[in-house]
C-alpha cells in the first residue's frame, strides 16, 4: 500500500518558490515606476523653466490640480458615471451575444457554415464606419454609443468562445460520452468550463476595445462622458483638461481590467498552467 503523507506535495512545491522565478517579484514594481516618474519630474522642471510652453503641455502638477478641481466640483464623477454606464451596458450586451453566438457556432458545424462568414465580414468593418449609420438610425442619444460598444465587444468574445469550444480535448468529450452524458450536458459540464480560459482572454480584449469605442462615440456626439471632456478641453484650449481626461481613461481602463483579471484568477484557480509568480499554498 502506498503511503500518502504531505510529501509529494511539498516536494512539488519546492522549498523556495522564489527559486522558480526568473524575475524577483518585489523589485519589479519599483523598477517599473522609475522611468515614468523621471519623465514626470523632467516635464515639471522643463515647463517651470519655460522650455516647454505651458498652454501646449501643462506641468504634471497643473494637470493634477485640474483633476482635483474637476473632482471637487462633481463634474468629473458625472462624466465617469456616464461613461461607466455606457461601458457596462454595451460590454454586457456584446459579451453575452458573443458567448451565445460563439457557443452556437462552436457546437454546430452547420450553424458555423451558415453564419460565420457573415460575422467575419462584419468583423472586418472598421468600427468607426458604424458611427454615421448608428447616428442616423438611433439619433445622438445613449443608444448609438451603447450599440457601438456592444459591436466592439461582440467579436473578440465570439471568436474566443468559438475557438475555445473547438480546442477542448476530444478525450474529455469521449469520457463524458462514456458516462452517458447527452449533448446539452456535455456542452454545459465539459465544453463550457473547458473553454473558460479562452473566454476570459476574449473578455479582456473586448473590454479594452469597449473603452476605445466609448471614446470614439463620445468624441463625436456627447454632452457628458470622458470623451466629451476631451472634446471640451480641446475646444476651450485647455490642454490640462485633455490630459486630465486621458489620465482618468488610463486609470479606469486599468481598474476595469484589474477587476476582470481578478474574476478570471478566481474562476480559473484550477488551471495548472505555468505561473512564474506562483507562491506556496496555491495547490489543493
Amino acid at each position: 500500500m502506498q503511503h500518502f503523507t504531505a510529501r509529494p506535495l511539498t516536494h512539488e512545491l519546492g522549498e523556495d518558490p522564489a527559486a522558480w522565478t526568473t524575475e524577483p517579484q518585489r523589485v519589479s514594481v519599483p523598477v517599473g515606476v522609475w522611468f515614468p516618474l523621471a519623465v514626470v519630474l523632467l516635464l515639471e522642471a522643463a515647463v517651470r523653466a519655460g522650455w516647454i510652453p505651458a498652454h501646449l503641455l501643462p506641468a504634471p502638477t497643473t494637470v493634477l490640480s485640474t483633476l482635483y478641481d474637476l473632482a471637487a466640483s462633481g463634474a468629473l464623477w458625472q462624466h465617469v458615471a456616464a461613461s461607466g454606464t455606457r461601458i457596462a451596458t454595451g460590454f454586457a450586451i456584446g459579451a453575452v451575444a458573443g458567448v451565445v453566438l460563439g457557443l452556437a457556432t462552436g457546437l454546430r458545424r452547420s450553424l458555423e457554415a451558415a453564419f460565420d462568414p457573415t460575422f467575419q465580414a462584419l468583423r472586418a468593418i472598421p468600427s468607426l464606419a458604424w458611427v454615421p449609420l448608428l447616428l442616423l438610425w438611433l439619433g445622438i442619444d445613449e443608444a448609438p454609443k451603447i450599440v457601438l460598444i456592444a459591436i466592439g465587444a461582440l467579436f473578440p468574445v465570439y471568436l474566443s468562445v468559438q475557438s475555445g469550444v473547438r480546442n477542448v480535448d476530444r478525450k474529455l468529450v469521449e469520457l463524458a460520452q462514456a458516462f452517458g452524458l447527452g449533448q446539452p450536458a456535455i456542452a454545459w459540464r465539459v465544453l463550457l468550463p473547458a473553454s473558460l480560459p479562452s473566454l476570459f482572454t476574449g473578455l479582456r480584449q473586448a473590454l479594452s476595445l469597449s473603452w476605445m469605442f466609448l471614446v470614439a462615440a463620445e468624441l463625436i456626439a456627447a454632452t457628458r462622458g470622458i470623451g466629451y471632456l476631451l472634446t471640451d478641453g480641446r475646444e476651450t484650449g485647455r490642454a490640462d483638461v485633455v490630459l486630465a481626461a486621458i489620465v482618468v481613461l488610463a486609470v479606469l481602463g486599468k481598474l476595469s481590467d484589474g477587476v476582470l483579471k481578478f474574476v478570471e484568477a478566481r474562476a480559473l484557480r484550477w488551471r495548472d498552467a505555468f505561473d512564474p509568480g506562483a507562491g506556496s499554498g496555491q495547490r489543493t
Binding site: 478525450k171 474529455l172 469520457l175 465539459v190 468550463p193 473547458a194 484550477w270 488551471r271 495548472d272
Partner: peptide
C-alpha cells in the same frame, strides 16, 4: 482510459 482524463476544474 490510459490517461486519467480528470476534469481539471472539478
Amino acid at each position: 482510459f490510459q490517461e486519467p482524463r480528470l476534469l481539471p476544474w472539478l
